[in-house]
Amino acid sequence: MLSEKSLAEIARERTKYPSDQARSALLAALRIAQEEHGYLSEALMDYVADLLGLPAIQVYEVATFYTMYDLKPVGRHKLCVCGSVSCFLNGSDAVLAHLSDRLGVGLGETTADGVFTLQEVECLGACKDAPMMQVDDRYYENLTPESLDALLAQLRGGSDDVR
């Protein structure tokens, strides 16, 4: 179920840990699997379990414990707006409202075109640059209605590579 590249990456992760501790590579293996498939289906989790020689339930436990794993399909871009205290004090609710309004989706929902999923998350450790959000791999800070609109346009404009 995984490409050579992903398998090689997982194999590299395994070398970081003692040889009898393959389980240590589980979080990484799930991340790599998710990067390739977009989300963690049951079949994919079972595959990872086999790959690392773990009982499937241990994989489900981990996949459902950590918030960065998606157990259902999500949009091409995940907009994760921080709603914790420092961002909240700096207007994170308004950021969410703005995005929800512009995209026509509520929290946890994906736009009809499958481009955006809107989520509220807890503190992302960038409190001094509040309000902020994470989009895919990247942080966007000191958000304003204008910067949000520009970002949406850019992401929608096809250029996926916002790095």
């Binding site: 049951e42 009982p55 339930i57 241990q58 489900y60 436990e61 459902t64 414990f65």
Partner: peptide, 18 residues
């Protein structure tokens, strides 16, 4: 190991998950 505790916090629940 067939039963596990999936989910976190108050959503933690015991079962086979599938």
């Amino acid at each position: 190991m067939e039963l596990g505790a999936t989910g976190r916090g108050e959503h933690m629940s015991i079962g086979t998950y599938v």
